[in-house]
Design a protein around this nucleic acid. Structure first.
Length: 111
DNA sequence: CGATTGACTTACA
DNA sequence: CTGTAAGCCAATC
């Protein structure tokens, strides 16, 4: 495993943690922000270990605003409930008004 | 160590 | 517009 890769994972965690309340972002957006636009899967994979990183993975969805990773959470609708609790409307694993709640790290976050 | 898979995305038919 | 293909890279088998 290359040290840079670890940096990549670490950055994913950092960015994910900076997601504002009631906002969501996509794997691709984070990957693009980190300079690995074609490695969106790595972002999702990084989320695999996010459980121990205090990372709000429920705020990270795919490009369509679909909660594809909800199956990796404890409960069945935990991810949806968490988002709903933050004011994000989620219907059938689909974030409503995705564009309105979308949080682009490359625009909102400046390293 | 080679093959398979996966919390994705883009491109082309 | 729907379906299939490929690329990405690390983890798992």
């Amino acid at each position: 495993m290359k040290p840079e890769t670890i940096n990549f994972f670490d950055k994913v965690y950092q960015v994910a943690r900076q997601i504002p309340y009631g906002r969501v972002t996509s794997y691709g957006a984070i990957a693009n922000f980190l300079g690995a636009a074609k490695s969106a899967r790595m972002v999702g994979y990084a989320m695999n270990g996010s459980h121990d990183k205090e990372v709000p993975a429920h705020r990270v969805v795919n490009r369509k605003g679909l909660l594809t990773g909800k199956h990796h959470f404890d409960g069945t609708h935990l991810m949806e409930q968490l988002l709903e609790s933050e004011g994000v409307k989620v219907i059938d694993l689909q974030v409503q008004d995705f564009d309105a709640v979308f949080w682009d790290p490359s625009k909102e976050l400046k390293f």
